[in-house]
Amino acid sequence: MHKMFLALLALLALPAHAALNVFATVPEWAALAKEIGGSRVAVYAATHGLQDPHRIEAKPSLIARARSAQLVVATGAELEVGWLPVVLRESGNRNIQPGRPGYFEAASAVALVDVPKVLDRAHGDVHAAGNPHIQTDPRNILKVAEALAARMAELDPAEATAYRSGVQAFAAKWRAALARWEKAAAPLRGVPVLVQHRAFPYLTDWLGLREVGVLEPRPGVEASAAYLAEVLARQATQPARMVLRPAYQHDAPSRWIAERAKIPAVTVPFTVGGTPEAGDLFALFDDTLRRLLAALPTP
């Protein structure tokens, strides 16, 4: 018993791993932490590209990983409200509790849109803080990158300069990519689109796409056949040219509309790993644009 206790103490006294232990709730922030920190960070992504980040359970594996994390990178804006609070509290890790430097919310670095004026569940599963799907606008990624790098530097002062130069290098590459993407995306400006879930306000804002309808009667509520028929009827007066769906949602509603309205259904990778091509943050937007542009009729 005595020996066991000593062994336990020794275990607790072990110095922290050399690498900064990062627990990211979604793949995009895992990828971003890796871009900034490189080999200085050990990153764990709690979800992958085909999971709905709203509906994750506080699984034992997540509690175990949160236990030894030094930094939790979450989206915030209630995206992870159904599971992350339990994971954090059950982890027994004081450093990653909200309010501590080890808890970072990406949404705190950007201005959110779709902030509901009325908070009433009759309007569906609304997010009080605004729409949390900020990662679909690459300009937001840049803002989050700067804030995240500052936080990483704060937590791991020994490597602070490395994180700073990491984010600078990333930002330079990202700005170049942004210019390239925006040039390529010019034909998308003003194109009317339908969306399967209200997940794209940041993407449509960035690309100038015009959202003319949603395949959910209310956020988080599955469309009925009657509702879809209603959306389809609106095609006559307000024709959309494609229908967008985040990769983690099943494709039935968007396929239904696409077949009847004779418009392409576009699977947007939505996050790193959402499609096989979207292997990292750069590829995420390369692939997003490639898929959107491919849905436009060739001139």
Binding site: F104, A109, V110, A111, A150
Partner: peptide, 15 residues
């Protein structure tokens, strides 16, 4: 102001 605000927000890192 908007720029300043976002800069400030990023600097403070607080919601």
């Amino acid at each position: 102001a908007r720029e300043a605000e976002s800069a400030a927000r990023q600097a403070s890192l607080r919601p």
